[in-house]
Design a protein around this nucleic acid. Structure first.
Length: 418
DNA sequence: CAGTGCGCACCGT
DNA sequence: ACGGTGCGCACTG
């Protein structure tokens, strides 16, 4: 309850700071929220962290300092639609992150709704779906997962967050007299990244990414922290080599992730996708986790080889990989037979069970409630998934980018080709 | 003094 | 050229 409220407050604050041309940093956000709503800075910080984890708010390292962005309003710099080829390749992953924030010029993909929609979505999602617990669950999952061996990158981002020490005395701006808020974790990390600003110290590829948009923030997940601008520099240097002993190398996150994603990495695309990595990682993580619980892998899309290829190409949860590559062909084929046939023939129940199996049981309910069958699914646009189902933005994005879009694409490819 | 408005420089696309 | 960002300064209550 209060959470959604905080969400609004915080997003509002960020927006207004931005419109005022003031940097939406922790200090200002906390202060403004306190002024406007009387909320404790600590609480604000805590909520902010949550929002960050949910990707409702993006923590960014810009021009050497930490900034927060209203994810719903962030627009991907006109990533001019890359060629279809590229786009296709990066597909899911990329789009997942971009389109959301983009202007919606994605080649495939429905244009995305405006920010407002998203924003609304976000809050709405929370309210409707509520389940703070869910959220918590997600978070915790992420956190717990963090350490998972498989994907250091993924955790990187989340790892930090979970640790979140709200009470810790954090000072984003180094010395902040004001509210002593404290989400140390995130902040610090970001600061670290800031290093990115120093191109000289970083490798060619990464620096750019970091410097440019700051999205890197995510990567910033490092625990270290910074306090003064001067230090940052040092950190920058430090970060480069050892990149945080913490096992995960936040700063290199991007690269790693991409690799993971399938090698398609597309380093060139780094700048444009900085967000992706984390995002993707998060997705994978979540998916994977969920999947664990449910043995039955997502079989569905599997209909055709095309799909498989696609899957491989794009990034997928470990499990999926194993499924596809690993010897579960049998299973896959079986499923293929059942479901794949043709999306057009999926019933509402099929769709629901698909998503349920895909790790989105709760959201599956929404599909069922909205009576989404195969045909409807094929007609769904991004905005439909994000706002029409009243599901939380996070899962909605994942569902759309990783499943709906993939299914649609696969379906159409299959039929068009033929 | 806090909050606000905004010119301007900077940067990436 | 264009758009996003935020510093720095002036203004306001």
């Amino acid at each position: 309850m209060s959470e959604s409220k905080y969400r609004e407050w915080i997003l509002d604050t960020i927006d207004s700071l931005r419109s005022r041309k003031a940097r939406p940093d922790l200090e200002r956000i906390c202060r403004m929220v306190r002024r406007r709503h009387g909320s404790e800075p600590d609480r604000t910080c805590a909520e902010l962290e949550k929002l960050i984890r949910e990707q409702t708010v993006l923590k960014v390292n810009y021009k050497g300092s930490i900034s927060y962005r209203n994810a719903a309003k962030v627009q991907r710099r006109s990533r001019k639609k890359d060629d279809v080829t590229t786009a296709a390749r990066r597909s899911a992953v990329e789009e997942a992150s971009h389109s959301d924030l983009s202007n919606g010029d994605s080649a495939f993909g429905p244009v995305d709704p405006d920010e407002e929609d998203l924003e609304a979505d976000t809050s709405m999602a929370m309210d409707t779906d509520s389940n703070a617990e869910e959220e918590g669950a997600d978070e915790s999952r992420d956190g717990q997962d963090g350490p998972s061996p498989g994907r250091p990158d993924a955790d990187a981002s989340m790892r930090c967050a979970p640790v979140r020490a709200i009470s810790a005395p954090c000072s984003p701006s180094g010395n902040r007299p004001g509210p002593g808020c404290g989400p140390v974790s995130g902040l610090d990390c970001a600061s670290l990244l800031k290093a990115g600003e120093r191109p000289s110290s970083l490798p060619p590829s990464s620096p750019r990414a970091l410097t440019n948009n700051d999205w890197a923030y995510h990567s910033a997940v490092c625990p270290t922290e910074r306090q003064h601008p001067g230090m940052q520099r040092d950190k920058a240097a430090a970060s480069k080599p050892a990149i945080h002993s913490p096992a995960t190398s936040p700063c290199t996150l991007n690269n790693n992730v991409k690799k993971e994603d399938g090698g398609q990495a597309v380093e060139s695309g780094l700048s444009s996708d900085q967000l992706v990595p984390d995002y993707a990682a998060g997705l994978q993580e979540e998916t994977r986790i969920v999947s664990d619980g449910r043995p039955q892998a997502l079989s569905l899309p599997s209909d055709n080889c095309t799909l498989k290829n696609k899957l491989n190409i794009t990034s997928f949860p470990a499990e999926e990989h194993s499924l596809l590559n690993g010897g579960k062909d049998n299973e896959v084929s079986v499923k293929k037979e059942n479901m794949s046939q043709n999306l057009m023939q999926w019933t509402v129940a099929d769709v629901a069970s698909y998503f349920s199996a895909a790790g989105f049981p709760e959201q599956a309910v929404a599909f069922r409630t909205q009576e989404i069958d195969g045909k409807s699914l094929l007609l769904m646009q991004r905005s439909d998934v994000l706002t029409g189902l009243s599901i939380r933005l996070g899962p909605a994005l994942k569902i759309y980018e990783r499943h709906v879009k993939v299914l649609q694409r696969t379906h159409f490819l299959e039929y068009e080709d033929v």
